[in-house]
């Protein structure tokens, strides 16, 4: 994990260091289906996915990309500091895609007695397709 980040260290407009995932595998989609209890065959059965109109077969769970977005925030700010992750699903992700989670700081503010940071976040594949877009909120400790 990265060094501890303090509220005073970050500024509005700062980029958060991106996090790249290795290519998504079909085994990972089976694992995610089992771990999340999302058994929609669109994510695990090529024949089913093709019948549902996906030319290349299965597509990844949108929630897997959101999981990467959450992991990205936790990796940067520390899991204990993550308060909110919110995304819109904007495009499909396929096996083999390498997902990059990135973001920047939009606002620093106080809420519920904490120093909070609102971040813009998105996940993008190696093809440049933006697959989720949204925001995250983290609470950062103060050097006080």
């Amino acid at each position: 994990m990265a060094d501890k980040i303090y509220f005073e260290d970050v500024n509005e407009g700062d980029e958060i260091p991106p996090a790249t995932q290795p290519g998504i595998t079909k085994v990972q989609l089976l694992q995610y289906a089992g771990a999340s209890h999302d058994y929609n065959l669109l994510h695990t059965d090529d024949g089913f996915a093709q019948m549902a109109g996906m030319p290349n077969g299965v597509i990844a769970h949108g929630m897997l990309s959101m999981g990467f977005a959450g992991q990205f925030l936790a990796g940067w700010a520390g899991l204990q500091n993550v308060r909110k992750v919110s995304v819109r699903f904007t495009a499909m992700t396929e096996p083999g895609d390498e997902v990059v989670a990135a973001g920047k700081i939009v606002k620093k503010y106080q809420e519920d007695g904490e120093n909070r940071v609102l971040c813009e976040i998105q996940t993008t594949t190696q093809k440049g397709t933006v697959t989720t877009k949204g925001e995250g909120v983290v609470a950062l400790p103060s050097k006080g």
Partner: peptide, 11 residues
């Protein structure tokens, strides 16, 4: 699935 949000005061 259009959008999803999770909010939690702590993990």
């Amino acid at each position: 699935h259009g959008s999803q949000e999770y909010e939690a005061p702590k993990p």
